[in-house]
């Protein structure tokens, strides 16, 4: 391996999907450990529950307090099951919303880490308003009067990922993926055949390079050959400097400018793929 570190094979989208899901890939808990000091975890949605698949709290970043929130998949089978493999229930999104409101109150930036196959599809999650929770998270993020930096670190699956990803800056690890649905789900919906997932990942434009080109993300964080798990420290270092650089961009913006910046950014997404038919009369 040594000496070959820089030689990166051109990975297929399906290979990147596999890397994004790799068991050894650093998750939100590892990023928090590596990038922040004095992390204090805060739990509970103050309504009825605590959902550990969203990990959040306050920490120091380069000497200043920040609110940190991310999807937590867990480090072993026991944790995977407890945290539903990083698929949040409404309680998780509502906890995130509570922490974001506090970030605004205490005027500290919000940093979010995105790594989820999607929101949890379960009976209770539906009964407790999964749609409502995600919608309100988006609405809240759009209005936040503090800087928000979102980092897609692994799997960015569907609305469950987007619900925490409405950043002024959206960064993405080189082998992370971000898509409207998992490739399996996409193939199942459109072709009624979940086994065609590799083919789906080819057409979905879910890689960091594709998303940068489409204007969905702002910067790609390079990974070592073989993926982030091969040399996590290198990734931590690059991400640390990227986050700090992006936070500096927003230093001089006031609250309304920050919110407006975010709204404008997301309102523009996809605009270049629109056209206006010249209609003489109503159909």
């Amino acid at each position: 391996m040594a000496g070959k570190k820089d030689a990166k094979p051109n990975l297929t989208p399906a290979e990147r999907v596999a890397l994004a899901r790799h068991a050894g890939r650093p998750g939100t808990a590892e990023f928090i450990d590596a990038l922040f000091d004095d992390f204090f975890e805060m739990k509970g949605d103050r309504l009825c529950g605590e959902d550990g698949s969203v990990l959040g709290g306050v920490a120091m970043f380069h000497g200043a307090p920040v609110t940190v929130i991310g999807h937590r998949k867990g480090r072993n089978l026991d944790e995977h099951l407890r945290y539903h493999f990083g698929m949040p229930s409404p309680e998780g999104y509502r906890k995130a919303g509570r922490l974001m409101a506090q970030a605004e109150k205490f005027q500290r930036p919000v940093i979010t880490f995105i790594d989820t196959p999607g929101a949890y599809p379960g009976l209770e999650a539906e009964a407790h308003g999964q749609g409502d929770a995600i919608a309100r998270s988006l609405a809240r993020m759009s209005r936040l009067r503090v800087p928000v930096i979102s980092v897609i670190t692994g799997e960015g699956g569907s609305g469950g990922a987007l619900a925490l990803a409405m950043g002024n800056s959206v960064l993405m690890l080189e082998n992370a993926v971000y898509s409207v649905l998992s490739p399996e789900g996409f193939a199942a919906v459109l072709w009624k055949d979940a086994s065609r997932s590799a083919e789906a990942s080819e057409v979905m434009k879910l890689t960091a390079a594709d998303l940068l080109e489409m204007g969905v993300i702002d910067e790609i964080i390079e990974e070592p050959a073989g993926g982030a798990h091969e040399h996590p420290k290198a990734v931590f270092k690059k991400l640390d400097s990227a986050i700090s650089r992006h936070l500096q961009l927003y230093e001089d913006m006031n609250g309304s400018a920050l919110s407006a910046h975010r709204c404008k950014k997301f309102a523009a997404m996809g605009k270049r793929y629109l056209t206006n038919l010249d209609i003489e009369q109503d159909l």
Partner: peptide
């Protein structure tokens, strides 16, 4: 589905509006 991630982004756009 056929418009991929950009469809997802419309959730953020409409919620913000």
């Amino acid at each position: 589905m056929q418009e991929g991630i950009l469809s997802l982004m419309q959730m953020a756009k409409t919620a913000a509006a």
